[in-house]
Structure formats: structure tokens, C-alpha cells
């Protein structure tokens, strides 16, 4: 669970950004007169280097990451259009056997069954023991789980940036926020997650709230440290002297520096959040089982794992979950490599 909290990649990227920002120059160097050199002026006056273009170029060179990015894009789109495709059954609908009128039981994957309305239906991934279509359930579940993952990542990023900027930029707030951070960072995430998930009624909103409650702290801390380093740089001082509003300094001068780490944190937070959902479901505080989610599907599947003929109900949701996790993980890593200026040649 905690694997993603102090991620090596994040550490490394933050470190390298830090280094590039805080190169310490000696007294001498700072106050040395430079000789005038026409060629040097010519050279440094123009550069076609663009950070984002280079990042994108680097990223697109990583074929696997590109493939997974496209796959994730397609997956997200598909979860939304799947219910509207022809020949789909609502994930919640109980399908009855045309002969007995009773619900179908554990239809094996790929079987074609005649339903009560006379249609022949192919259960691509089989059904559960009351004839609910596993295929539709998996897509509905993926939709829910991805939604939770992305929503939490967004909340964390927004809150983290907001608090981080305030924390770093407004000196008066530094003490309060630092103390607050020291307290919040000391509480094990799992405890907060369990407590909140329990006290509030289980719902998608509750889960998002519980997961967002702790995740933003790390982000805020990082942003704050960066801002403290950058805010008194000469060019920012100059900006302020020229009357540039604070928000503009923050958005134009400060945040672009940090965007790569923010995105990496978000990319890694999504699979972590989906994992948390599975965990919370396991301990019985998850979403109501009537809401399809990967956590619920896996939890139901676990109880059937001992029976080889029904194991498909565990394996398919697990595969989908694994693909999502691996994809975000790989994409995030490839992105962080690409976003590291040191790798731009």
C-alpha cells in the first residue's frame, strides 16, 4: 500500500530539480566581471530549446510507454461508450434462463444462452451466480475505479498546489502549516483511511474524500520547498519590482518548474488509489456491493478462488486491474525520465 508514498522516482526527480535550482555560486563567481564576447552573446541570445517539446520528444521515443498511453486512452473511452454499444446488457440486470425463468448460474465465459425474451446472448466473460454479465460489470467497475483514482489524484494535486503555494509564499502562514504538516504527516494513512471510511456512509464520494485526506500533504510539502527556493530569485524579485501581481509570478514563473513532478505524482497516485479501493473493500468498508467496482468484483472473486471452474470471476477483474496499474506506472516512469532536463540533449 505504502509503496507509492515515498516513491524513488519522485524523490529522484525532485532532487534533480532542486539541484538545478539551487546551484550555489561562490562569492567570487557572483561578483566577477565577465569579458565581453560577441560570439557568446550570439550563442546565448537565441535558443530553440523548449522544455515541453523536448519532454514530449523524449517521451514519444519510449515505445512501450506510448503504447500503454494509447491503451489507457482507449480503455477510458471504451468504459464510457461500452453501455451504448449494440448487444450490451446493463451490468446490474439479472438474466433469466428461458426454460426455467430462474436466474442463470455461473455461465462459463463465451457461452451463448437463450434469455427469457428469446434472444441469444453471448456471455463474453461469463456471468456470476445470479446471471449478471461479468463483461458489463468489469467495464462498469473499471469506470468507477478509474473515476475514483483520477478524482483523488486531481483533488490531491489541486489541494497540494494551493496549500503548497500559500505555505511557501505567505511567510506568516509558514509556522502554522509546518506544525499542521508535522501532525498530519505523523498519522498513518491506513488509520485515517479506515476511520473516515467507517464514520461516513460508504459511497464513491466518501472514498474519494477519505483517500484525498492524506495524499495532498506530500505534494504541498514539495511545492512549498520549491517555492521557498525560487521565490526570492533575482528574476522574481525583478518581476515583483515591476509590479507583476503575485498570482502571475506564481503561475508564470514558479509552477511551470514544478509541473513534471506534479504530473508524475498524479500518474502514480491513480493506481495507488485503485489499490486502496480494493483494500478498503476487503476490510468491508468499501462501496456498496450494488455499485460495480474493481474492488467489489475482486472481493467476490476471491471467495470463489478455490473452485477452478469459477475462478474466471476473479481472474478477469484482476487482469484489468493489473493492466491499469502497470500502464500508469510505466507511463509515469517514462514521463519522469522524459521530464528530467538532464536527459534532454
Amino acid at each position: 500500500m505504502a509503496i507509492f508514498k515515498h516513491h524513488a522516482k519522485i524523490e529522484a526527480l525532485e532532487k534533480s530539480l532542486n539541484e538545478s535550482l539551487s546551484t550555489a555560486l561562490s562569492e567570487e563567481e557572483q561578483f566577477q566581471f565577465a569579458e565581453f564576447d560577441e560570439a557568446e552573446v550570439e550563442r546565448s541570445g537565441y535558443s530553440n530549446y523548449s522544455y515541453w517539446r523536448s519532454t514530449l520528444k523524449m517521451f514519444s521515443k519510449n515505445r512501450i510507454a506510448m503504447f500503454l498511453l494509447v491503451l489507457m486512452g482507449a480503455l477510458v473511452v471504451f468504459t464510457f461508450i461500452q453501455p451504448y454499444l449494440p448487444g450490451q446488457i446493463d451490468y446490474f440486470q439479472v438474466n433469466n434462463d428461458s426454460t426455467t425463468g430462474m436466474p442463470l448460474r455461473n455461465v462459463p465465459p463465451g457461452d451463448v444462452v437463450e434469455l427469457t425474451d428469446g434472444t441469444q446472448f453471448r456471455f463474453i466473460l461469463g456471468s456470476n451466480n445470479i446471471g449478471q454479465d461479468l463483461w458489463a460489470n468489469i467495464w462498469a467497475g473499471t469506470r468507477t475505479s478509474l473515476f475514483i483514482g483520477v478524482a483523488v489524484a486531481l483533488v490531491e494535486a489541486t489541494l497540494g498546489i494551493l496549500v503548497g503555494v500559500l505555505w511557501g509564499y505567505v511567510r506568516k502562514l509558514d509556522f502554522i502549516f509546518t506544525e499542521l504538516y508535522n501532525i498530519l504527516d505523523n498519522i498513518p494513512t491506513t488509520i485515517v483511511l479506515i476511520l473516515v471510511a467507517y464514520i461516513l456512509q460508504p459511497s464513491i464520494g466518501t472514498l474519494i474524500f477519505a483517500m484525498s485526506l492524506t495524499g495532498w500533504i506530500g505534494m504541498a510539502r514539495f511545492i512549498r520547498n520549491q517555492i521557498i527556493i525560487i521565490r526570492d530569485r533575482d528574476y522574481n524579485l525583478a518581476s515583483r519590482c515591476l509590479g507583476t501581481p503575485t498570482y502571475r509570478v506564481i503561475f508564470k514563473n514558479l509552477l511551470p518548474y514544478l509541473i513534471s513532478v506534479i504530473m508524475l505524482r498524479m500518474a502514480l497516485s491513480i493506481p495507488a488509489n485503485i489499490g486502496y479501493e480494493v483494500f478498503i473493500t476487503y476490510i468491508g468498508l468499501g462501496l456498496p456491493a450494488t455499485t460495480a467496482s474493481l474492488g467489489n468484483l475482486i472481493n467476490v472473486g476471491r471467495s470463489l478462488m478455490l473452485s477452478p471452474a469459477l475462478r474466471y470471476q476473479l481472474i478477469y477483474p484482476t487482469i484489468v486491474l493489473s493492466i491499469i496499474t502497470i500502464s500508469f506506472y510505466t507511463i509515469g516512469n517514462a514521463f519522469s525520465d522524459a521530464a528530467d532536463p538532464k536527459n534532454h540533449r
Binding site: 448460474r105 455461473n106 456470476n128 451466480n129 471467495s303 470463489l304 478455490l306 473452485s307 471452474a309 469459477l310
Partner: peptide, 9 residues
């Protein structure tokens, strides 16, 4: 034995 596994058993 859970009902979902009865058929197999």
C-alpha cells in the same frame, strides 16, 4: 459450502 459453489461440488 457457499451456494455459488454447490454446483461444482
Amino acid at each position: 459450502i457457499p451456494t455459488s459453489m454447490v454446483d461444482e461440488w
